[in-house]
Simulated scan of single mutants.
Amino acid sequence: MSQSENEQKRNFWTSFGLSFRTRLVIGLGVLLILALVWMANSVDMPAFGFVLIPFMAMTYLLPTLIAVSRKHTSLGPIFALNLFLGWSLLGWVAALVWALTRPKPDEPVIVETPQASTADELAKLAELRDKGILTADEFEARKKSLLS
């Protein structure tokens, strides 16, 4: 089995064939369900906890949710910053600003090819004629089109 096949197989089993965004949304959903189950089983949890905790979780993860909705190219690092440093106001604001930035579009690469001079073109045509690739009539026709 080749190395790329092994990598594809490993990537499938580690990601279950799902994209990062899909796994992130599923993971956040599971965490939310676990929080709701914990609150439902808690004796001393007030009833407004069913609204307060999901609201707080959504507010805490707001930069990540914005990055997901905008399909930001740096979603993974934004999520990591939000998750690990979001507890500090500075980390949360940094993740929010990063999520709201517009990623730079891929700029096309412009390759300029130097224009061959007429003399170079005539030399190439003469070489093709000498090798027998072009007939004398084809050579004269192309030479005439180059010089006109």
Rank of each mutant, 00 (worst) to 15 (best):
P103N: 09
L85G: 02
A99K: 00
T101W: 12
P77D: 04
P108V: 11
V93S: 07
L96S: 09
E107P: 00
S88I: 12
A80E: 01
D106S: 13
G91N: 04
A95Y: 01
G76K: 13
A95S: 11
W98H: 09
W92V: 05
L100C: 15
T101C: 13
L96F: 14
P105E: 13
W98D: 07
P77Q: 04
L81Y: 01
L83N: 09
P103M: 10
P77Y: 05
K104P: 00
L85K: 02
G91R: 00
G91L: 04
V93T: 06
K104L: 12
W87S: 10
K104Q: 14
G86Q: 02
I78R: 00
K104M: 10
V97S: 07
P105C: 07
S88H: 10
W87V: 13
L83K: 03
E107Q: 15
L89V: 12
P105G: 11
L83I: 09
F84D: 05
R102C: 09
W92Y: 05
G76D: 04
A99P: 02
R102E: 14
A80L: 15
N82V: 04
N82R: 02
L90N: 05
P103C: 09
A80D: 00
V97L: 15
A94L: 10
K104T: 12
L85E: 03
V97I: 15
W87F: 15
P108F: 12
G91P: 04
L81N: 02
D106E: 14
P108L: 13
P108H: 12
P105R: 12
S88L: 14
D106T: 12
A99F: 06
L100G: 09
L90W: 08
L81E: 02
N82T: 07
W87I: 12
L83Q: 10
T101Y: 09
G76H: 07
F84N: 06
W98S: 12
N82W: 01
E107S: 14
L90H: 04
R102K: 15
G76W: 10
T101G: 04
W92A: 06
A99L: 06
F79L: 15
G91T: 05
T101V: 10
L90Y: 07
P77N: 04
T101Q: 14
G91W: 01
W92K: 02
R102H: 12
L81H: 02
I78P: 00
I78G: 03
W98P: 00
L100P: 01
N82F: 04
R102A: 15
F84G: 03
V97H: 04
T101S: 11
N82H: 03
V97M: 10
F79W: 13
P105L: 11
R102S: 15
L90V: 14
P105V: 12
L83S: 12
I78C: 05
L96E: 07
G91E: 01
A80P: 00
